[in-house]
Design a protein around this nucleic acid. Structure first.
Lengths: 143, 143
DNA sequence: TATTGTTATACTCTATAACTATA
DNA sequence: TATAGTTATAGAGTATAACAATA
């Protein structure tokens, strides 16, 4: 098959960002596979480890994830022994999520794996470019 | 609920790109809603309009989309009257995809809508930053 | 036998709403 | 009655494999 010119919108800025985001997500997923979790699980572990005694509702709101999806994420974490639900004594409707020792280890390993993955991902940029790129991403996100 | 510190990895470069890509895709989808198509349909229209007499197989390979998914995309385009399948006379296994007049109009409108959407999306960056950002995205994609 | 397009199937992710238990 | 968590359901998206027509 001969080369096809004007093959897609991949040349436009919008599509470059979409493709880049898709690749970054794929990389994050792949570096976490060995730990048996996905980025969303690590997000929850990270949030809960840094902020003990959060309820599922609070985690949902903070991460912008629907509560019914949070149920499945925490089901996963419990099944893998990375976190446990504990009834709040003050309000027995609330499920406080607690990270286990194993969960803390996986969190630490996951953060390291992600950092290494990002290093590879940004290898094509020098330190100065990386910093500028990071700042511009923040601007585009309104941060 | 009081503010939660260290809320997520959203502060890291990897997660910024993932979020940015997700937003860019959402924006592209929203600006195309009025035309009754999604970005993937516009990608096919764009590719086929620029390269007449491509078969479904060639479109699939070029866009990196599985052939069975390409079937549904072209089903959509036919249902909307934007493209038609034509049997290749040389090889009757091949379905050559042809953009209709209506398809060309939708393609033109879609490209304009996307360009306007991107203008809004990148409003937080000045012309110089936009160009640098675009170049860096290209580097990260290996382009 | 190999290739093009199609269909079948299943699995993930997501969105909505109904349900329970507590308040 | 309102809220936290759960469950049920359905819809998109996608990946794999089997299949029919044609080469």
């Amino acid at each position: 098959m001969p080369p096809i010119p004007n093959s897609s919108f991949a040349s436009g800025p919008g599509y470059r960002i979409i493709k880049l985001g898709s690749r970054a997500l794929a990389r994050a997923e792949s570096v976490l596979i060995g730990l048996g979790i996905k980025p969303r699980h690590l997000n929850v572990l990270y949030l809960v480890a840094a902020n003990p005694s959060l309820s599922q509702r609070e985690i949902s709101v903070e991460l912008g994830v629907d509560p019914n999806i949070m149920v499945t994420i925490i089901d996963d974490l419990e099944r893998e022994g990375l976190a446990v639900r504990e009834r709040s004594t003050a309000d027995r409707r609330r499920h406080v999520v607690v990270v286990t020792a194993k969960g803390k280890q996986v969190l630490e390993d996951g953060v390291k794996a992600l950092a290494q993955g990002e290093k590879d991902f940004f290898a094509a940029l020098n330190a100065d470019e990386r910093e500028k790129f990071y700042q511009m991403c923040g601007k585009l996100l309104g941060m």
